[in-house]
Amino acid sequence: PDFTLHWNGITIHFKGIDEEQFRHLRELLDRGVSLEELEELAKELIK
């Protein structure tokens, strides 16, 4: 499924991740993950 997340004025689209992965990403963003960390995470998910 696809998810869209609005965070700090940025709209991020996640394609092909499951709800569990999306929930994990939201928790990280709510905790204050940096954009660099988010990019690293995205690379991991894409593999």
Rank of each mutant, 00 (worst) to 15 (best):
P1Y: 15
P1A: 11
P1N: 14
P1H: 14
D2I: 14
D2W: 07
F3W: 09
F3C: 06
T4R: 04
T4Y: 08
T4F: 09
L5N: 00
L5M: 05
H6L: 06
H6F: 04
H6Y: 06
H6P: 00
W7C: 06
W7M: 09
W7S: 08
N8W: 01
N8P: 01
G9S: 02
G9H: 02
G9D: 05
G9Y: 01
I10A: 05
I10F: 02
I10W: 00
I10R: 09
I10V: 13
I10N: 06
I10Y: 01
T11L: 05
I12C: 03
I12R: 01
I12Y: 03
H13E: 14
H13K: 06
H13R: 08
H13T: 10
H13S: 10
H13N: 10
H13L: 05
F14C: 06
F14Q: 01
F14E: 01
K15W: 15
K15H: 15
K15R: 07
G16V: 04
G16Q: 05
I17V: 06
I17D: 04
D18T: 15
D18F: 04
D18Q: 04
D18L: 06
E19I: 08
E19F: 06
E19V: 06
E19M: 05
E20V: 11
E20Y: 11
Q21H: 07
Q21G: 09
Q21Y: 06
Q21C: 04
Q21V: 09
F22M: 09
F22Y: 11
F22C: 03
R23Q: 15
R23L: 14
R23W: 09
H24K: 13
H24S: 09
L25Y: 04
L25P: 00
L25W: 03
L25N: 00
L25S: 00
R26K: 15
L28C: 05
L29A: 11
L29C: 09
L29H: 04
D30G: 09
D30F: 09
D30A: 13
D30I: 10
D30C: 06
R31F: 08
G32M: 08
V33K: 07
V33G: 14
V33E: 04
V33M: 13
S34G: 10
S34E: 05
S34A: 09
S34F: 08
L35T: 04
L35I: 12
L35E: 02
L35A: 05
L35C: 05
L35S: 04
E36N: 11
E36Q: 13
E36F: 11
E37P: 01
E37M: 11
E37R: 13
L38E: 00
L38V: 14
L38P: 00
E39D: 07
E39A: 14
E40S: 11
E40G: 08
L41H: 07
L41G: 01
L41P: 01
L41F: 14
L41Q: 04
A42Q: 03
A42I: 14
A42E: 03
K43H: 10
K43W: 04
K43P: 07
K43M: 08
K43T: 09
K43Q: 10
K43N: 10
E44S: 13
E44Q: 12
E44F: 02
L45S: 07
L45H: 07
L45W: 08
I46Q: 11
I46T: 09
I46E: 11
K47A: 14
K47L: 06
K47V: 10
K47R: 10
